[in-house]
Design a protein around this nucleic acid. Sequence first.
DNA 1: AAGGTGACCGGCC
DNA 2: TGGCCGGCCACCT
Length: 108
Amino acid sequence: MEVNFFDRVYALARQIPYGKVTSYGAIAKALGAARSARMVGWAMNASHNLQDVPAHRVVNRTGLLTGKHHFQGTNLMQQLLENEGIQVIDNQIVDFEKHFWSPEVQQF
DNA sequence: AAGGTGACCGGCC
DNA sequence: TGGCCGGCCACCT
């Protein structure tokens, strides 16, 4: 079975539970490419076509909504997170560690 | 086919 | 203390 790097990112991103967030690096590391966090972000860029991928739950390690600019509207990403009970102030997730979800390699 | 790019990360100055 | 730079690897033109 040919599995693209992107597909793995999407698959893992879909595992992110409601009200939880994770970082690009964490996903990359879970995929075995800790130093390929950029690829994860890139994959998210292509995830716009997919509806099942909660890209808004993926932020950088500082909890900053770096990718918010890629979402529709100005603060859509922030609203989505707040809608899930995550407090966001000025594109920065409050208590990021508290809401952080460690991605685990799921069995497909 | 080769080069550029990117929603990052970590370390160094 | 903050800002800058390089590395890293797959996708796009």
